[in-house]
């Protein structure tokens, strides 16, 4: 029996977060990813042609998912509720806090796959390229909101501290533990 990471958000959070699917979250994320692409194009160079693939990022503890086409300055992000039956080149499913830990490099994707914390399907070559490009980009929250300098450092510190606290509260592993 495999010992999965914990870290599912409580049901109340899922309930409270559901209306977010109807907010213009997709447009906001699209804007943020395009801004990031302009600031740090190296990640998209590393991704190459796989940037035109579609990635369905589906948190198992939320009632909506994100469809991402990370095509640099032409990137698109859409939020989709479960009722949308969408085909994507790649699908990744897992708890939200774990998926966020993949974005910032806290967790190792292979380890999460080995212990079945995440499920993947679709084009494995696109998934591997996406994972490696994200890994090297060393993503920080400030990159997406366009902040620089001291204020960017403060934002990153508080967001990472918040994520650490959320992982502690949900029983997910922390950075430095069984990643």
């Amino acid at each position: 029996m495999v010992e999965r990471f914990k870290g599912e958000l409580p049901a109340i959070v899922r309930f409270l977060a559901f209306p977010a699917a109807f907010l213009p979250l997709g447009q906001a994320l699209t804007f943020a990813v395009r801004r990031f692409a302009r600031r740090k194009p190296a990640m998209f160079d590393r991704l190459g042609d796989y940037g035109r693939c579609s990635f369905l990022i589906a948190p198992t503890d939320l009632d909506f998912a994100f469809l991402v086409v990370p095509d640099g300055a032409r990137a698109e992000v859409r939020t989709l509720t479960r009722r949308h039956g969408v085909e994507a080149d790649v699908t990744v499913k897992g708890p939200l806090l774990v998926l966020l830990g993949l974005l910032d490099g806290t967790f190792d994707g292979d380890a999460l796959f080995f212990n079945r914390t995440i499920d993947v399907a679709g084009r494995t070559d696109a998934l591997v390229a996406f994972r490696n490009a994200i890994e090297d980009a060393e993503l920080k929250p400030s990159d997406f909101v366009g902040l620089k300098g001291e204020i960017a450092g403060l934002l990153d510190k508080w967001v990472f501290r918040g994520l650490d606290m959320a992982r502690r509260l949900t029983g997910a592993p922390m950075g430095g533990e069984a990643r």
């Binding site: 490099g105 190792d108 994707g109 292979d110 380890a111 994972r131 890994e135 990643r179």
Partner: peptide
């Protein structure tokens, strides 16, 4: 070499 930096660091 195919693993993430989380693995490498740890």
């Amino acid at each position: 070499r195919q693993r993430g930096k989380g693995y490498v660091a740890e």
